[in-house]
Structures are given as C-alpha cells and as structure tokens.
Design a protein around this nucleic acid. Structure first.
Length: 419
RNA sequence: GGGGGAGUGUCCCGAGCGGCAAAGGGGGCGGACUGUAAAUCCGCUGGCUAUGCCUUCGUAGGUUCGAGUCCUACCUCCCCCA
C-alpha cells in the first residue's frame, strides 16, 4: 500500500490522510476514479438514535469522495437492523419496533446532512435504505437468483467464518447469511445508483469482497472494495467511550462542549493521526502541528478540537466551545456557556443538599456516588472543595444567577436559576 | 432426540466450605505528579429518607433460623453422541 502512488484525487487524499487499510484493486480503482464520477457507498446500522465517533471515519471518507468529485451513497441498514446483528452481545438481541427504527433512521440522517450535500445533482449524496429491497425478498426467489452464486466452500474460508469454526464457536445460519445480504446490497446499489465501490471498517473486508464477487457473477462489471483501519487510541482503547457513555454525534445526546473536550483530551501520540482523519486542515499544517512537543502540543489539540467540532456542529458553535474551555481552564473564570441545568428559585430558597445537587447536574450517578467522590476529594462547588456531604446549597451560594459544580478538574456543570 | 457442562455485582472477565453486599482482575471515575496528555502511585467502583433499611448471583418454586451455594421445574448457551 505504501509503494502505490495514486493519481486520482480521491485515492490521493485517502492515502495521504491515513484512511486506507486494504483495497481490492488500488490501481483499478484509481483508474476508475479518474475516468468519471465515482459512486461509492458505506452501510450504517441504525440501532441507536445517533451515530457515534466510531462511524466518523467512514463519514469522512464519504465527505472526501464528494469533495473530490464523486457521488456518496449512505446506506442505512434498517432492513438488517430488523433482523438484529447476531454477532453482538447476547443481550443486545432485543428487536426494535418499527417506530424506533424510523426514529433512529431520522436521527442518523440528520448527521449525514452535516457532512454531505444531498440533492439531485450528479455528485449530490444519496441516502438509501436496504429495507427497500430486503424486506420484500422472497426466500425461494432469493435462493434461486442470488443464493446460487454463493459458494459455501468459499464462504467457509472467509476469516469471520473460519475463526468461528476453528474456535468451535457457534455460528448461526442467520449470521452465516448476513454476508449474503450485504453482498446483495452492493449489487442492488450498483443497479440503482451505479455504485462501484463499497467502503467500510476493516472488519467489513470479507463482506465487501463477497459483494464484489456476487457483482461479477451477476453482471455488474468490476466492483471495488476499500477499508479503513480500525480506530483505537494510541494506548489501545476503543474510540468513543467516555464516562458519559458513547461520544454521540447528535448534540442533543452529547453536547457541543463535551464533543470539543473529547478531542481536546486526545493523547499526544494521536494528534497527527486525528488531525488527518477528522479535520480538513492541509497536510503541511498538520505536519507542523504534530511536530509540536510537550506543552506546545496542547495548541495542536485545541486546533484539532475546534476543527473537528466545526465540521459536525458548525464553526460558530465550535468557537464558542473553545472560548468556554479557555475561560474555564486557562483563565479560571466562570464561563456562563458551560453546560447547565436549570433550578427554580424556590428549590434553592428551600435549600438543596450538595449530594442531590450533583445528582441533578448529572455529574454523579447517585447520592452514594456523590458521597464517595466527596471522600476522594473530587467535588467542588464554586471551585471550593466539598468536605461536608451534608452541606446545603442556598441563595448565598449564587454567583449572579449561577452555582458552578465540578467533578474533578475537567467536568463542570452550572446550576442556573430560571423562572 | 440421548449424555455431559455452564449462566455471579445491569461494562467485561472471573473466584465463591449454607452466614455474602459476595475474592481478584480489566475497564471506568476521583486524588497525587503533569500539560485538560501518556506512564506511574493511591483511593473508589449496588440503592436509599443511612450507625439502620432495601435490592442483587439465568427464571419460578422448595428445603433451611439462614441459599450465590442444597433440591425441583423451566429458559438460554456450550461440548459429545444421533
């Protein structure tokens, strides 16, 4: 991969910025990308109301495709979601209702709209849904028309299957069929929109190759596959997990400020890689930033945070998050734009226990949790360490209309009097 | 269908003579050190109207002063045989 020098804009960007992990035919795809608008798709599950940072690398690939003259297709897997992905955990098999699926689909669609330009023009993005063709499938017809092209012998050699068999782990028939459905998606998207490339995370490689094979047997012409590296932080943790849970891309579920903070807290060793993947800064600028050392690299982290946040939530919101962080961390001032929780004047006049105040702010999960944090010296009210768990907050604690609650050094929530 | 084994703290893995809010990891959170980083060290990691009360060991019953632990049925998963 390192010795190949792509000539198409699309592959050049992907290659330079570290999106490339594996490709079915780099030279062929490069040619294809140069010879006209390339249509490519990536599939997304709709098991939640929002996508999280784990999907961001895929979304960025679609975005670069569009910016380099291609046509992105975002496929929502609401058909496969109805079946439920059997490879997940034992408990996650609960079936989603039609309403939940529709809501999830709408939420995810909103995120795509932030990164891609949708419309009718040749390189405008398309939002598709495999429920359109999967739900109406007839079993016998599917077996005869599609199933006959799959070789079980070959399917058994796929890594995902082979691993299971070698370790003598259960592999359900449903799961075994999953790759066939995904392969069929590829063919269907080729028919509908002329899609010739499927992208995805490296775990999708086998499924993508199946699609390419199926396409050849069903007469789509040459299809291509390309995967991005599996993303983890430099110390090996999976991307996107924080104390608050997943890092959602929907501002309702994960605030803009928290999103900015997520990137600001990147490890030193990840800064360069993340700048290339999750911002659109020129590579020369990235090179300059990632060369910074010691305290200077904090500047690079702030730029990473602001640029990444701007892509998702807009420049203005990103600048505001940056400003909030600057006031909070560097000036030690009270930034009124920190995340806040409302409180009534009556509640405050009646006296609010510190424990419940922190629970209300969502900084701790329970009063017991709050007690433990106080013992460990982790809670502050208006930057004063809380030592007495029975302390009562009243109107005398107000700074203006605000009481600042902090958990540790990084997490702050404001209680704001309203009404 | 027959035989064998297993489901433990609502993040995961995993010990558990009938006295158990239940060992130990990992992860996470907090503290110290730093740079809002990493590494390292320390503390915490069921709930509550809290010197007490309530809810947890697949589900439902049963034995017992007392059950994660013993018995019965059921559910789910794994292995061997057919």
């Amino acid at each position: 991969m390192a010795d190949f020098h792509p000539r198409s804009d699309f592959l050049t960007v992907l290659s330079e910025r570290g999106f490339l992990n594996q490709c079915s035919d780099l030279a062929g795809l490069d040619e294809r990308a140069r010879s006209g608008a390339l249509a490519a798709y990536i599939g997304f599950d709709c098991t939640a109301r929002s996508l999280h940072v784990g999907s961001l690398i895929q979304i960025m690939m679609l975005r670069w495709l569009q910016k380099t003259g291609g046509k992105p297709v975002a496929l929502i897997g609401s058909g496969t979601t109805r079946v439920g992905d059997p490879s997940g955990k034992d408990e996650s098999r609960k079936l989603l209702t039609e309403e939940e699926i529709a809501a999830n689909k709408a939420g995810i669609g909103r995120t795509f709209a932030k990164f891609l330009r949708f419309g009718e023009a040749p390189t405008d993005a398309i939002l598709s849904d495999n429920a359109e063709w999967l739900l109406g499938l007839n079993y016998i017809a599917f077996l005869r028309e599609i199933g006959r092209h799959f070789s079980v012998n070959r399917m058994l050699t796929m890594d995902s299957v082979k691993l299971r068999l070698e370790r003598e782990h259960e592999l359900s028939f449903l799961e075994f069929n999953y790759m066939c459905l995904q392969a069929y998606d590829f063919v269907e998207l080729h028919r509908r929109y002329g899609v010739t490339l499927q992208m995805g995370g490296s775990d999708q490689w086998g499924n993508i190759v199946m699609g390419i094979d199926l396409g050849r047997r069903m007469g789509t012409g040459q299809l291509y596959g390309l995967t991005s590296p599996l993303l983890a932080t430099a110390s090996g943790a999976k991307m996107g997990k924080t104390a608050q849970g997943a890092v959602w891309l929907d501002a309702e579920m994960f605030s803009v400020y928290d999103y900015w903070q997520y990137w600001r807290n990147a490890e030193d060793r990840d800064v360069g890689r993340f700048l290339k993947l999750f911002t659109e800064l020129p590579l020369a600028e990235v090179a300059r930033l990632e060369a910074l050392r010691d305290t200077e690299i904090n500047e690079a982290k702030k730029i990473l945070a602001t640029e990444a946040t701007a892509l998702l939530h807009g420049r203005a919101a990103a600048e505001e998050a940056a400003k909030t962080a600057r006031r909070t961390f560097e000036e030690g001032a009270l930034a009124e734009t920190l995340p806040s929780v409302g409180i009534t004047r009556q509640e405050l006049a009646a006296g609010l226990g510190v424990l419940s105040a922190f629970v209300k702010a969502g900084l701790v999960g329970s009063t017991g949790d709050a007690r433990r944090q106080i013992k460990g010296g982790g809670l502050k009210v208006n930057d004063e360490l809380v030592t007495d768990e029975r302390a009562i907050l009243g109107e005398s604690d107000l700074q203006g209309e605000i009481i600042k609650l902090s958990l540790g050094k990084k997490r702050h929530v404001l209680l704001k009097v309203e009404g």
